[in-house]
């Protein structure tokens, strides 16, 4: 459960949000500059609220009035960034295993699970390839697998399918939806493609300036 009632200020940009997301997949649509990415970054803890309050699973994560700010590493969130930031010096499988390793799992165990996730997203054939050698579509699939591994409390996907080709898009959409429903967590998906949102999400939030 994510509840955010507050204002984000980022330079000259300022926007107030009243958002509640239960165990559902919410699609966030709207024109450029409506704060969709800022919203996801604030929930992830990469940006602070200027006022108001953010709770994740009924625990306050950000509340300037009470001086509370939970660091991103303690929020247990799975996220795909708009510019997917796979670590170039790690292989695909090591990238997917990263959230498990950084949370204390053994490398062997983490890599075994990462392999399963790569399989689900159809990129097990590139598991040992360095991330910097992957194509845009392959990188994005690996980034999605990395966001969903490790039972996150919430999942945030920022334009997760922008580099996926048209033919395999519907398969990836179905896999994401299936995995998110199986996780049963709050999920927010930002996309410019209304078809992506319709097929993956259970609810749509439309933001205007």
């Amino acid at each position: 459960m994510i509840a955010m009632h507050g204002t984000i200020v980022n330079g000259s940009f300022e926007k107030s949000f009243d958002l509640e997301v239960g165990s559902e997949i919410v699609g966030v649509v709207g024109a450029n500059g409506t704060g969709k990415t800022s919203l996801l970054r604030t929930i992830a803890g990469l940006h602070c609220l200027s006022s108001g309050e953010l709770t994740i699973n009924n625990e306050i994560s950000d509340s300037p009035a009470h001086g509370i700010f939970v660091k991103p590493e303690s929020r247990h969130i799975g996220m795909v960034f708009q510019v997917h930031s796979l670590f170039p010096f790690l292989s695909a499988i090591e990238n997917v295993a990263f959230p498990l390793i950084s949370r204390g799992q053994s490398r062997g165990n983490a890599k075994k699970r990462a392999g399963e996730y790569l399989e689900q997203f159809g990129v097990s054939n590139v598991s040992s390839q360095l991330a910097k050698t992957l194509s845009g579509g392959q990188s994005q699939r690996v980034a999605i697998a990395r966001a969903l591994i490790g039972n996150p409390q919430a999942v945030l996907l920022d334009e997760p399918l922008s580099a996926i080709d048209e033919e395999s898009r519907s398969v990836v959409r179905a896999t994401i939806r299936e995995r998110l429903l199986a996780l049963g967590v709050s999920a927010l998906i930002v996309s410019h493609d209304i078809e992506d949102v319709r097929q993956m999400c259970t609810r749509i939030e439309n933001y205007t300036r």
Binding site: L46, E73, H76, F81, S85, F87, F98, P99, S102, G150
Partner: peptide, 25 residues
């Protein structure tokens, strides 16, 4: 690019882990 450290933080890596696992490589 700080995006690597940001994504590592979201994935649960604290200050020291980010330095060891991301910045150093």
């Amino acid at each position: 690019d700080t995006k690597y450290e940001e994504s590592a933080a979201v994935m649960g890596a604290g200050d020291y882990s980010r330095f060891r696992l991301v910045v150093l490589p």
